[in-house]
Amino acid sequence: MGWLAAGDGYEVALVEGRVTARSTAGRSAGRQLKSLPKAVREHPETDRLRRFATWLERHAASCREQVDAWMVSSLPVPTGLLARVWPDEAWQAALRDVVVVGEDEDEVGFLRDATADGELRLVNLDGETIRISPATVTLPHPVLLEDLDDLREFAAELGVVQGVDQIHRPTWHKPADLPEKATEIKDFAGGRFPSRFGLAARAASLGYRVSGGYATARVLDGERTVEPAVWIGEPYWGGDSETGSLCWRDTDGRVLTLGGVGPVAWSEGMRMAAALYAGRTVEEGKNA
């Protein structure tokens, strides 16, 4: 976006998402100003740019949320769709360097480009650029990536910074020796908070839903939707509160046995419980 006239002697533009002004007259013509003069702050063009900047922020957040949803669900994504949205800078920022898997198990790499004719260009673990054009690809959840450690190491070498939390997303693998009829995990129970409101607010700030006495998430695990749930206390409770057990439920509210929880739902549930627990009040001193 270029510079727009904003009254006598000034122009405004969006620079790195912020409204910036420059002078068009005198010795300082063309020089960007450190702050907006009053006349510029109140100009309609400045207000229009502010509103546009807000829209761009929301659009970028929406793109990241959609790519994150594709990744968490590991659903097939049409290659043609990626090609269509790639020219959009917000979509490209969310998609660039996401690990993509094609139809062949050897077609794995960091997404670097998507052409108009539906071809994707990936950088694989050998450092080679490969070109693929399957009908669909997946953006796998990291718990499903067998070469996750190698991908993390290679990403560090390349200086890869992903727009969504994929390869560096904390993951948990389900133990093989779980009790047959067990339905809950208590690894992150007992995290104390000054109030139930504070615990609920933390859950909401992390993007989780608060419903009744639980913080919950929804995960498409294979072909079914599973809801990890952590007990956070009765609604409207005025005293202090603490994190409770973690369980997994189906869409009808039935609690699943731990053995019936798939790898993605397990990892995402543990991630939620750990994130809530991390905000607990930590006692200090010799009696802590």
Rank of each mutant, 00 (worst) to 15 (best):
T115L: 12
A265G: 01
T136K: 10
F188P: 03
A93W: 04
R50M: 12
G238P: 04
Y277W: 13
V85N: 05
G285Y: 05
T115G: 07
G233F: 09
D126Y: 09
L276Y: 07
H141T: 01
P134I: 05
E119K: 12
S195Q: 03
E65L: 09
R152H: 01
R18K: 14
D88I: 04
P76F: 07
T115Y: 06
V210Q: 07
S245C: 11
F110W: 11
Y208S: 02
T251I: 15
G127C: 03
T24P: 09
P140A: 00
D177E: 08
Q92N: 10
A182Q: 12
D149N: 10
I130W: 04
L206D: 02
R249D: 01
E227P: 01
V19S: 13
E45S: 13
T24W: 02
T24G: 06
G253N: 04
G212L: 06
F154R: 13
V261Y: 01
A288F: 07
G279Y: 07
T129Y: 03
F188K: 02
K286A: 14
E234C: 11
D165T: 09
V230K: 05
D88W: 01
S35F: 12
G159L: 04
N124S: 07
F193H: 11
G260F: 04
R27N: 14
L120K: 03
E157A: 12
G118D: 07
L139D: 00
T216Y: 04
V264M: 01
P235I: 13
G260T: 13
W237H: 15
V255F: 03
L4E: 12
A176I: 08
W248H: 04
L145P: 00
A13L: 08
A156D: 11
D252F: 09
T136W: 02
A274N: 10
V264C: 02
L144W: 00
S35C: 08
A5G: 14
A60M: 03
R96Y: 00
V226Y: 01
E65Y: 09
A182K: 10
W3A: 08
L256I: 08
R121F: 06
A189D: 07
V40H: 04
P263V: 01
R121C: 06
K286T: 14
W91R: 06
D126W: 06
R121I: 14
L125M: 08
